[in-house]
């Protein structure tokens, strides 16, 4: 965020580094059911991000003492592959960032999955980021939502996620890696679209209250597009 001395211009002639308009999403492609072992799975390309999501279960909670007698528990693992970024090879295994993202992703699905149906059991959600270019947690949640929907595990709604932020004084949607690194603010949001409930919200940088309003409006509008793509991907499997 705002780091580095050789800060590139993020907006030139009213366009962003990759030619997008301020409120334009990167191209998103979603494929359902490509991992045969999983109960549900999805592969998602979001700009240069490539993300796999899979869901297993419900199955008996292991180890037993973590089981909840009233509802299913969710285990979630978000991970970036060591070869996923254009920069250096990164250490594999969960770092602190990944642990936090896993936690907030888990909480998104604790909201929408009907956990009461499966007391004592666990549902596992895996998000593997194979290639990263900014906005991987949003991509991961969007993919995992499709994976869960394709599994038959009952859920109240299919959430989507996307980030908004600020470059210079412009509010921008769906930050790519360069924008993520040098923007004035980044605010990933996950939403259950049926009632427009905010399930995940993080932000850092600098936003006024008016800018937050503008950014959230952009997110809700983009949500219509993402929801439609999730729907088409799920329907494509049965037609």
């Amino acid at each position: 965020m705002g780091g580095g001395k050789n800060k590139p211009e993020l907006i030139v002639g009213g366009k962003r580094t990759d030619g997008r308009a301020m409120d334009e999403l990167r191209p998103i492609k979603i494929q359902v059911g490509i991992l045969k072992n999983a109960e549900g799975s999805a592969y998602l390309e979001w700009g240069n991000n490539k993300v796999l999501a899979a869901v297993y279960g419900p199955k008996e909670a292991q180890p037993k003492h973590i089981a909840n007698p009233d509802r299913a528990i969710i285990k979630c693992r978000y991970q970036m592959a060591p070869f996923s970024s254009l920069e250096e090879h990164s250490r594999s295994g969960p770092n602190r960032r990944a642990i936090e993202i896993s936690k907030v992703t888990k909480e998104v699905f604790e909201n929408v999955i009907m956990l009461d149906n499966f007391p004592g059991s666990e549902i596992d959600i895996f998000v593997e980021v194979l290639q990263s270019d900014g906005g991987t947690r949003a991509a991961g949640i969007t993919a995992a939502a499709v994976a869960v929907a394709s599994s038959g595990i009952p859920m109240r709604d299919i959430p989507y996620a996307v980030s908004a932020g600020k470059a210079g004084e412009e509010i921008i949607l769906d930050l790519n890696k360069i924008e993520d690194n040098y923007s004035e603010a980044d605010m990933p949001i996950a939403v259950a679209p049926r009632n427009n409930d905010i399930l995940l919200l993080q932000m850092d940088g600098s936003l006024t209250s008016e800018q937050i309003r503008k950014a959230t409006d952009m997110v809700i509008k983009a949500g219509e597009t993402i929801t439609k793509l999730q729907r088409e991907a799920l329907e494509a499997r049965y037609s």
Partner: peptide, 21 residues
């Protein structure tokens, strides 16, 4: 004094956009 610097929503419960603003 001037701007929001960081936000974090936690746990499974939700907030509406109206509540947020």
């Amino acid at each position: 004094e001037k701007v929001v610097r960081a936000m974090q929503k936690g746990l499974s419960g939700s907030f509406s956009f109206k509540e947020l603003t």
